[in-house]
Design a protein around this nucleic acid. Structure first.
Lengths: 189, 189
DNA sequence: AGGGACATGTAATTAGTTACATGATTGT
DNA sequence: ACAATCATGTAACTAATTACATGTCCCT
């Protein structure tokens, strides 16, 4: 699955410009599932337009540059369905935040605390957005996914909040217990 | 942060071969935070070896090809600390599973159910592994991260379990209510 | 006899990020 | 005045995936 399918998916929920698609994929709900920037969206849109999976309507605007509003065609709808039908690839995750915490003993305690606090704030912010968007009538799938996001973010934020201080305390203790050999088997599996 | 830092991080917890590092990053605990395959690990290791951040000890083996066991040098340790010190990039997530569910109305209900069930099983499997590895003495950060993983996976599995049937039911209902206009604003933000 | 685990690597391709390039309008 | 938002696109670069290439041992 690539950015082309991503665009088809966004357009399934309604016509949009490249700018709006990017917004959905880097700030909106979809950004929690699949991120993309201008550099991948605009070329994808051009390709989709070329193969007739979307149509593009140029709209002149007062002052601002012309808008290009894209719409899903029936062929595009079918292509989306076909893409969705094949088994989804395994989730791809890359969390430098979590990876860094793995080595929190190598970081100043204040930095560890700061990162956790920032992350909690980030989750809370995401939760607020999700909660407000829930309720407005949305597709059943979108509702399900939003509910899932809320459940997961809530659990994450709660864990960080309840274990933050314990981690810092443990870190402070082992700090002055001279250096200890880190366990090897702890990470291997 | 790139695969080189990933390797330094894995080696911080103990000497390992490229094969073992890949295992940790594609099946082990770390795979939940940062995935990598042979194609990126072996070249990274070669580069790290060239710049003196790791040392490589070749070990002849009965029958099997020679093992190359890598160890973190003091310079490597410092490089790891330096990398970890800079602010972590935003999490990068790509979940085709979740993206697909967003459009569950376009998929056969049985397929939706199957995917959710598979995902629940996957979470349960991950939970089991995490729980068994917890308890063995590990670095405080690793313990914290594992606990976080457990909390999040548990919430995710529970949500899927408790909402699975509701989704399928809703899907079946709207199916024969003719086609409805999906709401546009539901995804934009 | 066949598959999987152990073990290392390279080369080609693909995909995606980042930076560049432009420019008006609106709000602070 | 300055930053942010709206708006579109390209080019160069980086990074990572995939496929290829090889070979033994052990279990079923």
């Amino acid at each position: 699955m690539d950015v082309k399918t991503l665009c088809l998916g966004v357009l399934f929920f309604g016509d949009a410009t490249g700018y709006e698609i990017r917004k959905a994929c880097s700030e909106g709900m979809i950004s929690h599932l699949y991120e993309a920037g201008y550099g991948s969206i605009y070329p994808a849109l051009a390709q989709l337009s070329g193969t007739g999976l979307v149509t593009c309507t140029e709209m002149a605007q007062d002052g601002r540059p012309d808008k290009k509003v894209y719409s899903l065609t029936e062929a595009g709808r079918q292509a989306l369905i076909e893409s969705l039908r094949e088994p989804p690839a395994h989730d791809r995750i890359r969390s430098e935040f979590m990876f860094g915490l793995l080595f929190s003993q190598l970081l100043p305690n204040a930095e560890v605390g700061k990162r956790i606090d920032e992350r909690i704030a980030w989750y809370r912010d995401g939760l607020e957005r999700m909660r407000t968007c829930l309720g407005h009538d949305m597709a059943p799938g979108a509702q399900f996914v939003t509910g899932y996001g809320i459940a997961v973010y809530e659990a994450a934020a709660n864990y960080l909040e309840t274990h933050r201080d314990t981690l810092i305390r443990t870190l402070s203790q082992s700090e002055d217990t001279v250096e200890e050999q880190p366990a090897r088997e702890a990470v291997g599996r």
